[in-house]
Design a protein around this nucleic acid. Sequence first.
RNA 1: GGCCCGUUGGUCAAGCGGUUAAGACUCCGCCCUUUCACGGCGGCAACACGAGUUCGAGUCUCGUACGGGUCACCA
Length: 546
Amino acid sequence: MDYHKLSEMLYPKVTETPESLEARFPRRNLPEGAKVTRFAPSPTGFVHMGALFPCTVSSILAKESGGVFYLRIEDTDDKRAVEGGVEEIIATLSDYGISFDEGPSQGGGYGPYSQRARVEFYHAYAKNLVSRGLAYPCFCSEEELTHMRSDQEAQKTNYGYYGGWAICRDLSFDSIAERLLSGASYVLRLRASHESGQDAGTKSKSEPDIGSNIMFDDPAKGRIEMPPNDIDHVLLKSDGVPTYHFAHAVDDHLMGTTHVVRGDEWIATYPLHHMLFDLLGFKRPKYIHLAPLMKTDGGGKRKLSKRKDPECALSWYAGQGYPVQTVQEYIMTLLNSNFEDWRRANPTAGLRDFPFSPKKMNAAGALFDLQKLDDVSKNVVSRMTAEEVYTELTAWAERFDPAFFTCLTRDPAYTVKTLSIGRGGNKPRKDFGRWGEAKEYLSFFFDELFTPAAPPDPAFCKAYAEGYDPGGSQEEWFASVKALGERHGYCPDVKQYKSDPADWKGSVADASASLRLAVTGRENSPDLYQVMQILGQERVIGRLKA
RNA sequence: GGCCCGUUGGUCAAGCGGUUAAGACUCCGCCCUUUCACGGCGGCAACACGAGUUCGAGUCUCGUACGGGUCACCA
């Protein structure tokens, strides 16, 4: 077989060669240790949790090493493309603090940055492989492949196009030429081995190829050892567009990627990638495989699903009113086990300052825990200033709760005051973590949201209202609560009350509880004195007497 | 079915041959406190199972069970 002649027949118009491409895309000139990483989504427009994880890791790895992080659109499957999807992806990631050094919108020296625009590159390498006898056209139809699969199942042999099952592997030149002339469609397959078909297909299982296994070291998973690839995988689909595998090899080589971060569902295809890089003469990148996010379902765990789980979509967090920073912090918490400790030690430090370590990543899939997310969020919100909360809260309300938005923005200074209670200092309040929760928390500050509740001791409330003096200090204020409470049968000293409860109706704590319920309509509220100050004399007295 | 990965309290998660097996979330108790929170202190609660290697195993090896992934002209 004259493979060179075959390659010319298959790709007569291809003018680029591996040599010309190597010359066009020289190795990146970067400092020692700089990592080049990428985010490579399909242009569906959606970024989901499962994608944000590897994306975050890639971004961090590049940034902290002074390397390059770029966006590459994997649009080889035209069924998935969505209008405006790329812009949507960029905008979403920008919200989450992730930006690219190179990509389809801003360009860069290693583009184009979408795979459809790179087809000639793949063909140059494909032609080269064919001319070296390492790839061949396959004319099998979908039906034939389906039959093959069921035969393999019946024979309990491994599935796939390999060895003796690879019927197009040894087609003669004339036979290929004839089919091409008749316009038959074909895919280009890798010739995974040169063994004669029969041997490979019937190799005895009791004689494994000891020592021929390939291995790689994954920082997250440790050393992984697998048998080498023996499947004649498809390299170019019948429309000439590459499969993920082939595009991965060509693109990541040409674009100088040093570290590939991806989900661990890709581990199974590693042997193919290993083989492709070797055959093409490329230096293999380092791989970091991340375990999938899990969630409890019924009794067991399962992978977080794009289709079934709303919390998989990033938009869900926006709708619930989780600050972006919460999601970022939570991702870091799941990604690196020492992040929480670091955060406690550095409560105000920026996320970028965290020393991320790929080795600290967990090998097993983490369970996505909404309760934990709430806790993280409360901490995040408690560290914000009242003005920051105001800005984010109103932005959320404008989109998701217009009525609430109207309340909040009617008097911005007033709203900021309500948000200031218990904020700042070493022990900030942690009343809410989601903007959706803030409405409930703030309800009594706005008359249209206020729901009155009957206090246990209306007489006391009324008496208190009669003598209410809004001008006093906090100390004077609570001295007056104690004094009036005592006259109504409430012990001014909680400890004394506890040791001798029989003599009293309750303690000053119960007196306060009555006032709180009357003024706020709730058993929980921030510091009552400050609440009353903000509400103003008229509203306080009105509610106490109601 | 083949191949690969995983399994420490309810959840997340340290641990790398010798530890009283960290810490966080949840829950419970106590303290602080005018209230509500915050905070502090304490408690409940774990190495999937079985062999082996070793003076000694959560840590190494093998097997079993369970969970997950993958085996497309999808990525």
